[in-house]
Write a protein that binds this DNA or RNA. Structure first.
Lengths: 119, 119
DNA sequence: CGCTTGATCTGGAGCGGCTCCAGGTGGGTA
DNA sequence: TACCCACCTGGAGCCGCTCCAGATCAAGCG
């Protein structure tokens, strides 16, 4: 499929996909006879993974490392597993941060109500 | 209190606090006779709010707007409330994103287990 | 058949949000 | 007196996009 369709499916922008390719986050993407990128469904799965990791705060450096390990094949699975487990832990931390912020907002909103009632 | 203590209490870096002041995200911070910043507990509360909003993805532009409204006093409460309610909605969306990512990671990890067992 | 439209390409500039650094000031201790 | 440390300012640097100019090419159309 074309890059526009891949972008629609993974939620990244077209420019971001090209940027990720330049940055070594993608296995080399095939090109058609016209020189344009052709994405396989597997490419899209990979893009979705990259998008998820990035959106949830994994730095590009670590994503590059992960991509490199992936290229090496099954021997690298134990290290990849470690990376994903680590990242799952940071997800939990982030969620806690979100919850703290939500609580803070709720308290603020309540104070606004009190102020307006008090007038 | 000094900037180092304020930084320790709100979780932001010293440079980030100074940057936020330059950027209009803080009410003007008082200075001692020595020209150094002196933070009140109220300043720290504000920094904690800014840190929470920023960490959870509110753009600086909106934070600046919120700070400006705050300076205007109680008349701006309805707009401030709207901003915080909006932001609470984005928190929920982010949490959903985290959960999707966590599910994806869990699926990947399971596949790794299957691959290693299969060998 | 030539012409326009639209999607893609490349390389590079610009931007948001920090983060770090050089160079300078002033208070506290030995 | 000399040193150390925290703080100051202005500006450069960095990450992760995002946008832009200028070129190419396929498809649709009068």
């Amino acid at each position: 499929m074309k890059i526009s369709e891949a972008a629609a499916r993974c939620g990244l922008g077209i420019d971001t996909i090209r940027f990720y390719e330049r940055s070594g986050l993608l296995p080399p993407v095939a090109r058609g006879a016209d020189g344009k990128r052709r994405f396989s469904p597997g490419d899209v799965d990979w893009l979705i993974l990259m998008a998820s990791l990035r959106e949830t705060g994994m730095p590009m450096e670590r994503m590059r490392r992960f991509a490199e390990l992936y290229r090496r094949g099954d021997d690298s699975i134990s290290e990849r597993r470690r990376m994903l487990v680590d990242h799952a832990a940071t997800l939990a931390a982030r969620r806690a941060g979100l919850d703290r912020c939500a609580a803070l907002l709720a308290a603020k909103l309540k104070r606004y109500d009190d102020i307006e009632k008090g007038e």
